[in-house]
Amino acid sequence: MPRVIVDVMLKPEILDPQGKAVRAALTRLGYTGVADVRQGKRFELTLAEDPTAEALDAIGQAAATLLANPVIEDVVSIRLEAGSAPVPHPGSTPVLDQAQ
């Protein structure tokens, strides 16, 4: 099934305490070459069918409305995975549905 990947990052000027903590842990582990870490979010939207241009536009709007808060975050990329057909993890989707 086609899949759209949306990446969201905190705006560069927004402090990222989580990224700072990750960087400190990397330094403790001996990875001293890392100057900075910023932590973001990746959303994978699996679609029922190949999206039209309008459907992709709608996803762009959804990303800017819900997936990211434009006050503190940027949607840095929205891309359709070419020929994406992820192998379904046994039981993962039905279990999630039941949990709702």
Binding site: L15, P17, A21, N69, V71
Partner: peptide, 17 residues
């Protein structure tokens, strides 16, 4: 209220984590 843009700004993770 900030998410709804009824108030400006945002509330992010405490600086001390």
């Amino acid at each position: 209220l900030t998410e709804a843009h009824l108030l400006p700004g945002a509330l992010i993770r405490n600086s001390g984590l």
